[in-house]
Computed example of a mutant assay.
Amino acid sequence: MKHAILSASGAHRWLKCTPSARLEQNIKDETSPYAQEGTRAHALAEHWLQYELGLRLDAPQGEPEMMSYVKIYVDTVLDRITPDSMVMLERRLDFSNWVPHGFGTGDAVIVNDRRLEIVDLKYGKGVPVSAENNPQLRLYALGAVYEFGLLYDFTVVRMTIVQPRLDIISTEELTTSELLEWGDSIEPLAREAFAGKGELNPGDHCRFCKVRSTCEARSEANLRQARLDFQQND
């Protein structure tokens, strides 16, 4: 499967450290049991919603524990669907008007003449993820606004993350104008990131960066922090 250089899932990193996306570009993704588990959970969620929406006849099946957690996501999506809504699952969303060659996949996209909503499943439990100021969901929402904004009269965009294993459901709501304004504000950074330009900027966003172990800027920042800690404890 082709991946965007400036992925929505990595936006929290490349918006803060613009050279990082190009530095990671040729490093192979590492698979892990956690990633494989997340893939199975998303496949189950898609199957389950298709079944509930009458798009397939075979009932979903899976591990009992995973079924219980995924049901929370499925119920959340179903609760947000109204009779006049259009629902799309695992929808490819193009946000390249703001991010060069930018695209991603929205788990569930719900749209009607009042509201557009993106609902995202986070099956992991290692790191809590909030929908507030979440660039991944905002980019997905921009892609959905680009695709459906002329077909529907919604003025509100809602972005929801369901993280069932941490018992977290969080939502951010913006007007369409506020979302578009944010998109315009990050466009220069996205172009800089696509070009691989800018300054390396270590921080919390380095956690899942594929070059974190060889990044000189991160090593220097860690060394400065270690010296500061030593001085404070001396």
Rank of each mutant, 00 (worst) to 15 (best):
E30A: 12
S130P: 01
D84P: 05
R227Y: 15
L53D: 03
L200M: 11
L150W: 00
T214F: 03
F103M: 11
E181R: 11
G54Q: 13
V145W: 13
Q25L: 13
S170C: 14
S85V: 06
M1P: 11
Q232W: 08
G149E: 05
L6K: 04
R91Y: 12
V162A: 01
A43G: 09
P128Y: 08
W98C: 10
S32V: 04
I168N: 12
V111C: 07
I169S: 07
C17G: 00
E173D: 08
D58M: 09
Q163G: 09
E117H: 05
G196S: 11
D204M: 10
M86Y: 08
P135S: 05
D229E: 15
F194I: 09
H205W: 15
A21P: 13
N133Y: 11
L89I: 04
I161F: 09
R218H: 11
S32I: 02
R227D: 13
R115V: 14
S7H: 07
D75K: 00
G196Q: 07
G126V: 01
L166G: 07
E117K: 13
A108V: 08
M1C: 12
A195M: 12
E63A: 14
T105W: 00
Y146P: 02
N97F: 00
T155Q: 14
L150K: 12
A217L: 01
Q225G: 03
E216I: 12
V87M: 07
T39L: 00
V119C: 03
D120I: 01
D120E: 13
S177H: 11
D153P: 01
Y123K: 04
S85W: 06
I81Y: 06
L55W: 14
D75M: 05
I168G: 12
A43R: 08
Y51T: 00
S130M: 06
S219Y: 02
S130V: 05
D113I: 02
H3G: 10
A11G: 07
D29Q: 09
A59L: 02
D75T: 04
E220W: 02
G62S: 06
T82S: 12
K197E: 15
I110V: 15
Y140S: 02
R80K: 15
V70I: 03
N133M: 08
G106C: 14
R80F: 08
F230L: 10
G102F: 00
Y69A: 05
D29P: 04
G62E: 00
F154T: 11
G106P: 07
R224N: 13
L53W: 04
T176N: 08
A108T: 03
W14D: 03
F103Q: 14
E30Q: 10
G106Q: 10
K210A: 03
P128A: 09
S170V: 10
T31D: 15
L15P: 10
S170A: 04
I169G: 02
E63M: 05
V145R: 11
R138M: 15
H42V: 01
